[in-house]
Design a protein around this nucleic acid. Structure first.
Lengths: 300, 300
DNA sequence: GGATTTTACGCATTTCGTAAGTATT
DNA sequence: AATACTTACGAAATGCGTAAAATCC
């Protein structure tokens, strides 16, 4: 068993069990990986992959379990290189942050700015995606940290730190009827509503609030992106249910914002990373920056 | 970076950073490991080991961190071989159980007997030691499971399952004054006491009970082993504070036993194993046997 | 027939072992 | 003086690439 065989299994998995593509990915010829796979299976005494004739079709039950182990091995290898690089190069490196549009635009700017002042030689790459994919990015090594509000299941492989608590707010044009009078779920339910797509930015908490009241929300437009929602609110399509921090007092001065903290359960944005993923010192400091920025919000 | 270099670091650590011994352990000549170490350090760009001249003296900070990673890599490698072996050989293998004398003698016999009936081809090796070393056995791969009452700190690397709850009891010769009348901590404190050594079989709970009452226990003999304690109780050295399940109604019929459940906090014996250690099916079934045997005790 | 995997064989690289040299205690 | 580590060099083993054959769709 050697590193290349370990890597091969993962690369095969990521490339539809296509030996030729896996060979390309690993910068060797097909015959080489074919041979290595044979040797690996021979050593283990059982096939790792299912075949139709010669063609590889998937993992055997054994292969699935072995794949899981190879992933921790490769993570450890990656960690070793990362640790060594940290010692050699000091405060240089890349931090891959998986997050959503809302966090990237309304929460991260300040902590990232402060982080960059302290660690000018560390590059910060924001990997933006839908919440359900953020954790995947952690697992497949495309991100070091995930910052998200929903879908963070604690399965023991993740370290999850609560970051800050926030509420939703409703935004609407100034002349809208909801702009005055008491705000109730009933009145909200009577309006066309624009809000986040399923799985985005606390959408599930919005659902929950209305379900508990036996009301149905009339969502006429769902978007992943607060700016899209605000754009259509301005066009008069309805009121926007957005994260409170996504309202900008200056840029959104033409809109009325009303807090929904008493109507919709608060959401908690969390920081997550793989327990087995080594975070260099600058990564840990970045988390500290996030938590400091979060305190400003939690105690405001 | 290859597997041998990874293994080398751990073997060096386990052999006092002695290259020659490490070479023996790995069944290669010294010059080979010397060269491999150089190559590894060269690849990482910094030394892993501190040196006085040519002699290796210890790990650098980098080496310490890398060692931690190499250990997870080797664990994963071990898991792969174990998984493959499980597929090839079915219900055969070895289960290494780290535990103390008390558990081995008074709790394990029944579940092990039942387990052996179901898995006759699995060998059960009991690695007996002091509680403080049991967890070490897990970490250095000498045991798959640990069964112990004390010193199980949950640091995230362990899976800890509570197994059964039990109390201490006091045993004494039949004519002893404590054999009749109300049992109190005061009366116990007035007797010479024989009990477990520090760190053994709930000894800390005994301490706690007396400390809370402001009483001092007069321990005239401490042993790791219930049978030793009972032997000296029979010689009249004092009363024995032992685990309730260590009293055998038949063999110990010459002794009086009195329950201390109202005086000394109950202890919980736990099952622990490394989260990252792959347990074959028979290992998981063994845990089930333990938990079943535990239920008989908990609900008796 | 195009794509994919396997097999065969020679070449290149890596790793090891022997042996000698250098440093440490 | 004995033990421990490094260096040098030839030998063995390992892994790769080219090319051709076999198989799949």
């Amino acid at each position: 068993m050697n590193m290349n065989q370990i890597e091969l299994l993962r690369v095969l998995y990521e490339n539809g069990f296509n030996l030729s593509k896996a060979a390309d990915r690993m910068h060797v010829v097909q015959s080489a990986v074919s041979r290595q796979l044979q040797l690996f299976e021979e050593e283990l005494g059982s096939p790792l992959l299912t075949r139709h004739g010669k063609k590889l079709t998937g993992l055997t039950p054994l292969g699935q379990k072995v794949l899981a182990q190879t992933q921790t091995m490769q993570q450890a290898k990656k960690n070793i290189l990362s640790i060594a690089s940290e010692y050699k190069n000091g405060d240089t490196g890349i931090l891959h942050i998986a997050t959503t549009h809302t966090q990237a635009k309304y929460f991260l700017p300040k902590p990232i700015r402060r982080f960059r002042d302290k660690y000018p030689k560390v590059k910060v790459y924001i990997v933006q995606s839908s919440p359900e994919h953020l954790i995947d990015f952690l697992h497949n090594g495309e991100a070091d940290l995930a910052i998200c509000t929903e879908k963070v299941s604690e399965d023991g492989t993740l370290v999850v730190k609560p970051c800050y608590e926030w509420h939703h707010a409703v935004v609407m044009p100034k002349q809208h009827p909801l702009a005055s009078g008491e705000l109730t779920l009933e009145r909200l339910a009577s309006c066309p509503v624009l809000t986040y797509s399923f799985g985005f930015t606390g959408r599930s908490n919005i659902e929950k609030a209305f379900e508990n009241s036996g009301l149905t929300l009339d969502v006429v437009l769902a978007a992943a992106d607060t700016d899209v929602i605000k754009t259509y609110v301005r066009l008069g399509l309805g009121v926007g249910l957005i994260a409170e921090m996504a309202y900008d007092a200056v840029a959104d001065a033409d809109l009325v914002v009303r807090n929904l903290s008493s109507l919709i359960p608060s959401s908690v944005t969390k920081i997550a990373y793989l327990r087995q993923n080594y975070l260099p010192a600058y990564g840990r400091h970045f988390i500290e920056e996030l938590l400091e920025a979060a305190e400003d919000i939690n105690f405001q």
